[in-house]
């Protein structure tokens, strides 16, 4: 798998030269693989929100380089807007950025800024709305009349409409109920499958990441500390706990079982996996569907 985005020795310092100066990233090097969903996990203040803003050039690294398809995104600072169309960033609580009179106009804001023609904009708006499950009957409504979950999905559709090759989402499901969470993550997976985009999701929910991410990157204290497949990551329960994170509940259960002397595997992080493992131990074989 090719690396879509590479970060080379990047440091970022906020308010340099004032008493409020803080180092949000310390000499970070990492890469994001093309065409899969990478989960970026970290404690509050670990630097993950800073990292994602570096990816589309909203922040310029204090030192180091950010490479997209092997090219430095700051090579031509005047063309940074093109990078922002290629790397779509969904902020935390994106519903607070809605401003247009109608849902349709708000989703169309991004494509309009690219300078696309009317038909293309219309096509993209309808497609994006379909991804996030917003009915076309809502198009003429004011975005401020929608429910919280719907507003969130309209805002995400606003980024989908840019058709970015890389989609970055900062805590896309924060503050939503379980149904809202599923709706958001299903929208992201639908977008990823259809377009083959590279997706990066920032989260601190281990359960969500176990369910949706293909790879996981763990950040702590302005650095990347772990990186790999979910099963590899969740084996490091001790490291995760020491940086204030946790393993999924089901992994913890499997670890408890093994502590109690049951000879089970502990690299399991979904309920389905646990079911199969327990059935295997009980001698009933793998995939049983009842």
């Amino acid at each position: 798998m090719r690396n879509k985005i590479e970060i080379e020795n990047v440091s970022y310092i906020y308010s340099q030269g004032t008493p409020f100066c803080t180092e949000a990233l310390k000499d970070v090097s990492c890469s994001f693989k093309e065409g899969i969903i990478t989960g970026l996990i970290g404690h509050t203040g670990s630097g993950k929100s800073t990292l994602v803003q570096l990816l589309n050039g909203l922040l310029k690294p204090t030192s180091g380089r950010v490479l997209l398809d092997g090219k430095d995104i700051w090579e031509n600072p005047k063309k940074i807007n093109e990078i922002r169309f290629r790397v779509g960033l969904v902020f935390q609580y994106p519903e607070y950025q809605l401003f247009e009179e109608s849902v349709y106009a708000d989703i169309a804001y991004g494509p309009k800024n690219i300078g696309l023609d009317k038909d293309e904009i219309d096509k993209r708006v309808r497609q994006s709305a379909q991804f996030v499950g917003i009915d076309e009957g809502l198009f003429e409504k004011s975005p401020f009349d929608l429910s919280g979950g719907q507003m969130r999905r309209v805002a995400i559709a606003g980024i989908f409409a840019l058709m970015p090759e890389v989609l970055v989402l900062d805590e896309p499901a924060a503050g939503l109920d379980p149904m809202g969470r599923d709706a958001v993550f299903n929208a992201v997976t639908a977008y990823q499958r259809t377009t083959g985009a590279t997706v990066i999701i920032v989260s601190h929910s281990m359960e969500d990441m176990a369910k949706y991410a293909d790879r996981i990157m763990v950040m702590s204290n302005a650095k990347v500390v772990l990186e790999g497949e979910p099963s590899e990551i969740y084996k490091n329960a001790k490291t995760l706990c020491s940086i204030g994170l946790d393993v999924p509940q089901i992994t913890r259960l499997m670890m408890k079982l093994s502590d109690m002397g049951v000879p089970n595997r502990t690299d399991i992080f979904t309920v389905e996996g646990a079911r199969d493992e327990i059935l295997r131990l009980l001698g009933k074989g793998g995939n049983v569907n009842d």
Binding site: Q53, N56, R84, Y96, I159
Partner: peptide, 13 residues
């Protein structure tokens, strides 16, 4: 700052 960044991410200039 946040809203500006969010709109810049959608190509606002």
């Amino acid at each position: 700052d946040k809203i500006m960044s969010a709109q810049k991410a959608r190509g606002a200039d």
